[in-house]
Design a protein around this nucleic acid. Structure first.
Lengths: 350, 350
DNA sequence: TTGTAGGCGTTATCAG
DNA sequence: CTGATAACGCCTACAA
């Protein structure tokens, strides 16, 4: 365990070489004799030497750390399993390349921007990944302005072509989800999405509309609801929908958690799923399997979103003229028991 | 936006002072004239100066970053809402004092220890918080050996007196939960806990046993089950319990997620909660409210665990002779619909 | 109140 | 192959 603060110099002394030689051994420089390499390594071992990352960063102008930018911490998003899962993905991608993660948070958007500026200008990180994608985002403008390496999870609102991002095909996934319901025979399908501030919501809404249009089902504004990505949101949404004179017979819901809220409310109102109402939701987190009934949900491979994001970022960092790219993560509709043909009162459609 | 890499020297030049003066302005040194202070600040503004954290860290030997050590990333724990919530707490505590978070992960215990060694010896962080507490933990030994500032969330297995930690009173919380069931009239109460490797499990088991003993209810080994902290665990546990000749009429379950699994399995077996079986679980995450039936759960104030942990750590960092302390976070039993008096077939106990 | 100079622990560029 | 030596950007005695 030895003395704290063993430096390269101590090692050099013990091994009878110059500090620069030790440095070379650390960097595994090819042009160094096996003999001294051995000698130095033994010395390091003996002294319990560990390179000082900070000093190394200063000298080499690189930190091997990537910064995480999340939505404001007050945000409910934190409660959603989405977050730990992307994080896990990012973390794994980073770990494989020996990068560490660095994060700061803020309560407001301005605090967050501030935190980002600090970590970027303060040279604490080599690159940044944004865990969300909002419609008008100062953080993105800032990063673009300094042309600092960054990757967005989700689709950037502007300059899509110039920003490397990892996303699902949200248009298609929602279109497919809606089509699935249409195939089951539903004609009255409502859209319960998150805030229109989020790009993902915009994309999905388009997919929903397209599916209806292609099936020649009229769009109905009252069937489109935007709520917070959580339980309470679900409750309110359902309240509104079910007070319409023509209630929907099926719902596409932006998120499993929200869907759980919907399920509850429906239950309280004495409506059964899928008997009275069918539901398709998104994310396919563990919970969707455990709900009653188990939810049909679109798996968007959250872990991969994170994993690919850190991979892309690291490429961007290590190869300054890496082209910008867009990575689309696949999705799949996982069918469970929350969907059924609508009850028509007449006959059963197969 | 200007040139990248504006240094203290550039500012000094523009403001017509020595670099050291600029440094003093940054540190807000009292012995510096208002006039030059102003001048320097303007220069900083004009050049868009931001201090380089790395350089500062190297010179001052402090990083204003705290390291996070989590259980192995492959671990199911990641899926549990516990994790993002403590993280949020830690993050908030850190943010208030202008500390950033630094994390690395590993798949095995050895990888994790390695990561810790790297961040500690590499001087990347000023202190560390452990997000778990296991029975024999190399990380703790290591940290203690170097006497590096750290805080444990949960109760350390050994040397409790010498390690600052933030915990619930797990003995008492479990004792109370069990007593609640006893008061309802239950005599056959099973314990479905996590791995005995985790200190929290040990403590709770003791609380459970004490409650039974005080009520003069015989302990029954078959009623004590240890499973992974997740859904699957719950399933298996229930299977075992319900195949006993004397089935329990109530369960205390270590975690809401696990309880959800239990709920499902029970449902599949045609048993009703709380009709046939009562359940008390722990953590009181959002989900417990949304389960069917809503779960009676012990709220352990996860956010606070994290928040206090970072507070304590920062004190430890900033005041080297801060005494070790133990912070106990309160808990409360939140009663919902998953508990009822046992069905005796004879009379109803109130 | 301010400037000078050395050091924090590495890396990198020269020579040799 | 290896050794000086100068950065990296900031902090901090010590001097003035």
């Amino acid at each position: 365990m030895n003395d704290l603060a063993v430096t390269i110099k101590d090692v050099a002394q013990l091994a009878n070489v110059a500090p620069s030689t030790v440095s070379r051994v650390i960097a595994n420089s090819p042009r160094i004799s096996e003999k001294t390499k051995q000698r130095v390594k033994e010395a390091m071992e003996q002294l319990g030497y560990h390179p000082n990352f900070i000093a190394r960063s200063l000298a080499s102008q690189s930190t091997r750390a990537i910064g995480l930018v999340m939505p404001s911490s007050s945000d409910v998003v934190f409660q959603n399993p989405f977050f730990p899962t992307v994080l896990q993905g990012i973390s794994e991608g980073a770990h494989e390349k020996n990068y560490a993660l660095h994060m700061t948070t803020g309560k407001s958007e301005d605090e967050i921007l501030d935190a980002v500026i600090h970590m970027v200008q303060g040279k604490r990180v080599d690159g940044v990944v944004l865990l969300y994608s909002k419609v008008e985002d100062k953080v993105i403008s800032y990063l673009q302005g300094r042309d600092f390496p960054f990757v967005v999870i989700g689709k950037p609102y502007k300059h899509v072509e110039q920003i490397t991002h990892v996303d699902n095909d949200n248009f298609r996934s929602m279109k497919e989800a809606t089509e699935y319901l249409i195939e089951l025979g539903h004609q009255h399908i409502a859209f319960v999405g998150g805030s229109l501030d989020l790009v993902v919501t915009v994309d999905r809404l388009l997919g929903y509309e397209r599916a209806l249009r292609e099936a020649e089902i009229p769009l109905c504004n009252e069937y489109i609801i935007h709520e917070e990505f959580l339980r309470e949101g679900g409750r309110e949404a359902v309240g509104e929908l079910m007070s319409l004179e023509q209630c929907p017979t099926a719902l596409v819901v932006a998120d499993d958690f929200m869907a759980l809220g919907v399920l509850n409310t429906l239950d309280e109102m004495g409506l059964s799923v899928p008997g009275d109402i069918s539901i398709v939701s998104f994310n396919n987190v563990l919970l969707s399997e455990m709900a009653k009934p188990p939810l049909t949900s679109v798996d968007i491979n959250i872990f991969d979103l994170g994993y690919q994001a850190s991979k892309c970022l690291i490429q961007l960092i290590e190869n300054s003229n890496e082209p910008t790219k867009r990575v689309i993560i696949s999705h799949q509709l996982v069918k469970r028991q929350s969907c059924d043909a609508p009850y028509t009162g007449k006959s059963i459609i197969i």
